[in-house]
Amino acid sequence: MGPRLFPFGVDPIRPEPTTPLTIILDGVPVAGVAGQSVAGVILAGGTLGFRRTSVHGTPRGVFCGIGICYDCLVEVNGRRDVRACQRRATEGDVVTTQHDALPPGGAAA
């Protein structure tokens, strides 16, 4: 159960064969298809929550999917705060999930 890429042979839009790619999510290879967003690869790989929030430590993932909500932030190849839904995955991308603790005594709303 969960997100999945529409199986290739069934899709009525008659797609041509896709090119596979692999990204590394927190050290684990995840298979995707060339042209997908980083978020799409992560979702299709079965992970919905891939960030932990700073105040309550709860999981978050894709929410708006169009770059508005910034809930899907990940580190890509060492650069932080990349919206996974806006960034195209490229072969070998090293994606690290972000969990930023508040400073000691930091505000908890």
């Binding site: 997100p3 529409f6 799409g40 929550g49 999981p59 894709v62 708006c64």
Partner: peptide, 18 residues
Amino acid sequence: PGVFTGGAAQALAKGERL
């Protein structure tokens, strides 16, 4: 996680077939 906006569902369906 798993709660999406409608726009997310559409963008991923049309943009990635996901």
